[in-house]
Amino acid sequence: MTTTWTAAALSQDVPAGTAAPGRLGDRDLAIWRSASGKIAAWADRCPHRGMRLSHGFVRGEALSCIYHGWRYGQTGQCIKIPAHPGLEPPDAIRVPAFAVAEASGVIWVADGAPATAPPAFEGFTGFRSLQVDAPASVVAEALGGKGDAIRAALGPTPAVALIQPLGPDRSGLHLLAPLSAAPEALDALSVAAEDLRRRAEAGQKGRAA
């Protein structure tokens, strides 16, 4: 069981009233934010017929499944079944929820209750997520570092790279930059990150061949 925090998405990419897909280890997540701004990370599966909740829609403080409109409140408890408007849904109908916290513009998720708060990178905020078709270790190596949080040298603007393993040959790369960075500086970081992705993927192909 993962009791450490995993960087799963960026705060800017899940604005109020939206849902997005995410991953925690080998599990699919529905990450969503209510109209009032509350973030949640759930199993990406409606208990009724297994439909992905990340395809669902947010009305107010609840997430509804796109398939039959079953609606779930903040705790994951089902609060409405449209096919039976007069029925109070049984307590047993509940979507498993994961621990979630936001720091430095990053949405962190965990299975269980980590003992500490997620890492904060003072003065930095998340600005771009990319997926790389290479394992986390190869991405870390391309960044010239080790582990899952690397102070990256991608040009004149300092950056923090958070690497999220997504299986044996895929990773998420969440990039943080100084809050004060101008759009042009972020553009340059983006280009550098894509260059890094090309190299990591080319290296990966070379290894596989």
Partner: peptide, 16 residues
């Protein structure tokens, strides 16, 4: 839909 296969045993999905 997850799982891709249709669950025939009760428990995995909740009908009404």
């Amino acid at each position: 839909q997850i799982p891709a296969k249709l669950p025939l045993d009760p428990g995995l999905e909740i009908p009404t």
